[in-house]
Computed example of a mutant assay.
Amino acid sequence: MKEVKTITSSMLAVLALTNVALSSSAKADEWQFEATPYVWAAANEGSAGAYGLGPNGDINPPPTDIDINFQDLIDSTDLGTMLNFAAKKDRWLLFTEFTYLEVSDQATKSFTGPTGSSSAEIDLEISGTVLDVAGGYQFVEQDRFQMYGYAGVRYMDLDTDISIDAPGGVLPSEITMGDSWTDGFVGVHTAWQFSDNFSFNTRLEVGGLGDVDEAYMAHIAINHQVSENWQIKYFYRYQKVDYKGDGFIYDMEITGPGVGVTYTF
């Protein structure tokens, strides 16, 4: 089903710590702040859906295999918001990120019923929310190179309303599916100011410290300082999330380029 394809990019939306690298011209002993709206052109691949619906606890219907590009996501999106906010003082770093997405779509799903193989027309309405809160500490600073360690908590909430038109009424006409969970993560972030106006940033992150079975993220970025208060940030990110709980499976890989515009104050 294409419904979960669109959920994924809301998630993942997942956390852009490269948005946290603040202007080197600011004074270290004062609070520095950043606000960054951004877009992640994420492709999504994996599986998601319900499980444990069969009489023996088996997967019925099975999770949906997903392979969706960014254009498919844009075509299905009704409302989307992605915003990162960060604060830094001396060696300490705090950041939060909020993502909200509403999507709607239609799909055809094949299934096996009492009379054999058939198909159903499905109308979907989906909403997804992700909230990240984290903090870090700079433990390496040499010339123009910095390294931070960080830790945080991610809250995810997915809700899906499905209307099904199947022959003979062999499937329920209305299904509400979804779940919410929290997960802890730790990571390392590096920043290298290789010229006056450009810096190279990397980030490696490991999750799975809460409700999620496993989670990983790798992120590289180029930050372009276009003026004293403005930056353009170009990044490429890979993210993996594997969750199963309360009748819902979400096992996805999300990857692709993105861009953000940052105001520093």
Rank of each mutant, 00 (worst) to 15 (best):
E205D: 13
A166R: 03
G135D: 15
F98E: 08
G168F: 02
I175L: 01
V103I: 12
M156H: 14
I126W: 07
S163M: 13
F98L: 15
R144K: 15
Y155A: 00
F200L: 15
T96R: 02
L124C: 12
A151T: 14
G135Q: 12
F98H: 10
A191R: 03
H189Y: 06
P172M: 06
H189W: 13
I126V: 13
G210D: 05
F194Y: 15
M177D: 09
S110C: 07
V153Q: 08
D179E: 11
V140N: 13
V153N: 06
F194E: 03
E174C: 00
E102K: 12
Y155I: 06
D143F: 02
A107F: 09
V188L: 15
G207H: 00
Y100H: 05
L124F: 11
I162S: 01
T96A: 07
A134K: 08
Q138W: 11
E174R: 07
E97V: 09
P167D: 01
L204V: 06
S110V: 11
L204A: 10
D132K: 04
E121P: 10
I122Y: 05
P114I: 03
G169I: 06
F200N: 00
T202D: 14
G128N: 09
T96N: 07
A134R: 04
D123G: 01
G136P: 06
G116Y: 11
Y148E: 08
M177G: 08
G135C: 11
I122Q: 02
E102R: 05
N201H: 11
N201L: 04
I126R: 13
G152L: 07
G184Q: 00
T99C: 12
E121N: 13
V206L: 13
F185W: 04
Y148H: 14
V153F: 03
G113V: 05
G149Y: 15
V188Y: 05
E125I: 12
R203P: 11
I122M: 10
Q193Y: 10
F95W: 12
S119R: 09
T160L: 09
T96V: 10
T176D: 12
V186H: 10
Y100G: 05
G136C: 09
I162Q: 01
G187W: 05
I126C: 13
Y100E: 06
N201S: 06
G113T: 00
L158Y: 14
Y155M: 04
F111W: 02
F98C: 04
Y148D: 12
A191W: 01
L204Y: 11
